[in-house]
């Protein structure tokens, strides 16, 4: 059985005792708020124009015009913010030497890893949950289908966990937090845009690159489509990164 609670509580504590969690959450909300405001403003501008031009009305759709870009934007913010959340998880412990005691406590590597993973997830999910306020705000003004919204949030949850897992993995390989953050961000960005190369790398390789792309799998969610293929992609990505992290921790030990 997993014994992650003490580590989870400790990590939550250090996120919220230090300014990290507040800074991350505040920046997240400022950015998502601004993006949301822009999409709403743009959408209302289009609506105004549509009132003069009846042909445009048929193409006007709240899910496609507002909700989908909203989730896509939050996805980008998550890519920017999550490396800052995960960079400290193992790198800080290694740098300050607290790993020594941590690894001599009666805990398995898995307990430590999952405690840290869940703590980072909680800090990530707090601002995500707060963005629901925007949706509620729109719903007081107009009819909004709830299905696509739930799909979008599911997508954010799955994608966020995958990002966090990658971030933890990178953090476990270095003792420098800045290096951990930069490599995580670089890899996320690369996996985000990897599909771009698909157009000119041939049909087989192109398809592989497309499927590797983090954003391609998220597109469906933000359009309100839950495809089992995308769910499996994010889950596998998460598990694989966590598995690698476990291996890294283990190898650090026998290598001394």
């Amino acid at each position: 059985m997993l014994n992650s609670t003490p580590i989870f509580k400790k990590e939550i504590g250090s996120y919220f005792l230090s300014p990290i969690a507040y800074v991350v959450i505040t920046m997240f909300l400022i950015l998502s708020g601004y993006f949301f405001y822009s999409s709403v403003a743009y959408y209302s501008l289009i609506s105004m124009q549509a009132m003069q031009n009846p042909y445009m009305v048929s193409g006007l759709n709240l899910t496609e015009g507002l909700i989908s870009p909203f989730f896509a934007n939050i996805g980008i913010i998550a890519m920017l913010i999550i490396p800052m959340l995960t960079m400290r998880l193992f790198a800080e412990e290694k740098k300050s030497g607290t790993v020594e005691l941590l690894f001599t406590y009666p805990l398995r590597d898995m307990d430590i890893l999952m405690g840290k993973f869940f703590a980072a997830s909680v800090v990530y999910l707090v601002p995500i949950a707060v963005t629901a306020v925007y949706i509620i705000f729109i719903r007081t003004l107009t009819e909004l289908p709830i299905g696509p919204i739930l799909a979008g949030y599911l997508g954010l949850l799955l994608m966020g966990e995958a990002f966090i897992a990658l971030g933890i993995f990178i953090s476990s390989t270095t003792e420098n937090q800045i290096i951990a953050a930069i490599i995580t961000f670089g890899l996320l960005l690369l996996l985000w845009v990897i599909g771009w190369a698909a157009n000119f790398t041939g049909p087989v390789f192109g398809k592989i690159l497309n499927e590797l792309s983090l954003v391609r799998h998220f597109d469906n969610f933000s359009k309100g489509v839950i495809d089992i293929k995308d769910v499996v992609f994010y889950l596998l990505f998460t598990f694989y990164c966590l598995f690698l992290t476990c291996r890294v921790i283990e190898s650090k030990r026998w290598r001394g």
């Binding site: 014994n3 609670t5 003490p6 580590i7 509580k9 400790k10 504590g13 250090s14 005792l17 230090s18 300050s96 030497g97 607290t98 020594e100 005691l101 001599t104 406590y105 009666p106 805990l107």
Partner: peptide
């Protein structure tokens, strides 16, 4: 085993009593 390492590296941002409670929970 209870271990006191050479360079006593503890979590610097925690309060003493909270840290000890954390260790207690870890110890089961």
């Amino acid at each position: 085993i209870g271990y006191l390492p050479e360079n006593v590296a503890l979590y610097k941002d925690m309060r003493v009593v909270d840290y000890l409670k954390f260790v207690g929970r870890v110890e089961g």
